[in-house]
Design a binder for these strands. Structure first.
Lengths: 171, 171
DNA sequence: GCAATACTGTACGGCGTCGTACAGTATGTG
DNA sequence: CACATACTGTACGACGCCGTACAGTATTGC
């Protein structure tokens, strides 16, 4: 049915922001995947296609950073898009380590359809949310990303004091 | 290592909210997982434990709804927690289909440690973000979830009254 | 020139979640 | 009472992403 995850009186709502954020992300992926299903794409593929279409040939590492996933993951995404002839890998003359991922004519065609779907869905999602609220959301999330990044690095390096856990076999 | 996904001048920031949200969610999971690693828990397990600890025995379906994951997924989560003796499944007398998931003494112990980790990390994440901004974030995301949910159902059911012209859907 | 170091993309195994199909139980209808 | 329908939890296969290890290439220092 409704599947609203954190409904009204479950718990202090400000206490469970993580849960809300996580499930919102899952819903977001589900919504885009559903709308993009006719094009046989998922959200990651569509984002990649849109990016390459807009900014031209790009290295895989840059794409991975931009989409916020790992270099290993981006490889298989590109593999599939390439197999469908939507992007192509071009060697870069002055650096033979990297591939430049470029859009093909077919990919450009599809990118336009993606943009359309994207616009329609985004309009629906904006419903009842004001412009400045959206901007505030974006700002807070960017800030949150910074805090998260430093929190993660701070975790992996507790500096001097090691804990006593018995595994600790790596690195 | 930096992994700031949407940095300054990549693209119109308002256009890529989905990407930002997705990667923020991944970072959030990563941050909690890192902090909870000493307890050998991930974010989902910790959330479940915290919820059961606070609200008492709960059916699996309710837990799944609350955490925003499927019923199938919640089963294996509970399996693992049960194997470690952190929760237990109690039959409910008046409905023998369901299990009530209840916390054990060991689980309650761990839940306190979780709450501590949670509080510390959350304090770090709040850095540079005001109280009303956090509340606005929560509000917008809740609203967004509603829109997402109806967008998904609307996708799967083009319903009775479709519009006739393929374009001109909004605007 | 040659070695040491840094960086890019790939291979592989693992984890978490999804979706569907299914068995067991409850609830409503004749 | 028998039957159909709805709901809960489980089994199984699939997908997306992660993390580590690795080979190929660039860059720097000698």
């Amino acid at each position: 049915m409704t599947a609203l995850t954190t409904h009204e009186l479950d718990s202090p709502p400000w206490l469970r922001v993580e849960t809300t954020l996580m499930s919102t992300a899952r819903l977001l992926r589900a919504a885009f995947d559903a709308r993009l299903a006719p094009l046989d794409l998922n959200l990651t593929q569509a984002s990649l296609l849109g990016y390459v279409n807009e900014f031209g040939p790009t290295t895989q590492t840059h794409l991975a950073d931009h989409l916020g996933i790992g270099r290993a993951a981006i490889g298989s995404v590109i593999d599939r898009l390439q197999a469908r002839g939507l992007v192509e890998r071009q060697p870069r003359l002055d650096d033979r380590r990297v591939w430049l991922v470029a859009i093909t004519p077919a990919g450009g065609e599809l990118a336009r359809e993606i943009a359309e779907v994207d616009q329609v869905l985004r309009a629906e999602l904006r419903h009842g949310i004001g412009r400045e609220e959206r901007q505030a959301l974006a700002w807070v999330m960017t800030r949150l990303q910074q805090n998260l990044a430093s929190a993660i690095t701070r975790t992996s390096q507790p500096a001097a004091a090691p804990n006593l856990s018995p595994d600790a076999s790596d690195r």
